[in-house]
């Protein structure tokens, strides 16, 4: 579904106003909702989550003037309903795309992935340097064990910090997310050098 994505400025402004009267908060909600909708498309096996997210915003933008005055409730749920309809509409097409994607997993792609692994390593080292000492140590401790051993290890770790295992997991997830985003930003620079 990849295509040029451009919402008319007027509709975009109206979407933001629907989210929140404070434009800064609305912009943050917009970015977050895009990310979250893309995630729900992943869960539903859609092969182009970003493209489908664009389509959802496009559809809402086209109808916002009629929908907004009468819609009751959190606008994000309206976006989800549109996303849900889109998945149903595209279900057949998506399945075909998945089949083609699987068939296309060639040796060339595998070797490209291996080449990228080296870049990921380089970027990881660079991004780890940007992390504070505490965060780096937390990630290190959290992932120090695997499989069954990690369960007891993380319980002990959480006790040591005086927090629940749940909170520990959320904290490390946030750090990992920022680390992953840093690596994503770093990778194109390495690819360009080749």
């Amino acid at each position: 579904m990849s295509r040029d994505f451009a919402i008319a400025q007027e509709s975009f402004d109206e979407i933001l106003a629907w989210f929140n009267p404070d434009r800064e908060r609305a912009a943050a909600m917009y970015v977050q909702l895009r990310h979250d909708l893309a995630k729900t498309f992943v869960w539903r096996q859609c092969s182009d989550p970003e493209g489908m997210t664009d389509e959802v915003f496009d559809r809402v933008a086209r109808r916002i003037r009629e929908v907004r005055p009468t819609y009751k409730g959190d606008p994000r749920l309206y976006f989800r309903a549109v996303a849900n309809n889109l998945v149903k509409e595209n279900f057949k097409k998506i399945k075909t795309q998945i089949a083609l994607e699987d068939a296309d997993l060639t040796k060339q792609q595998v070797s490209q992935a291996e080449a990228e692994d080296a870049d990921v390593e380089e970027c990881l080292q660079a991004c780890l340097e940007e992390l504070s000492f505490d965060k780096r140590e937390l990630i290190l401790a959290y992932y120090a064990k695997e499989k069954q051993a990690k369960i007891d290890h993380r319980r002990e770790l959480a006790q040591r910090f005086g927090i629940s295992v749940e909170t520990l997991r959320v904290r490390t997830h946030r750090i990992c997310l920022s680390l992953e985003q840093c690596i994503e930003r770093c990778l194109p620079a390495y690819e360009q050098r080749k």
Binding site: A113, D117, I139, Y142, Y143, A144, E146, L179, E180
Partner: peptide
Amino acid sequence: QRRRLRITKSIKDWALAEA
């Protein structure tokens, strides 16, 4: 998505190796 998995794996591998 496969790249994201490789990135997550690289973080885990780094921590395991350090540990």
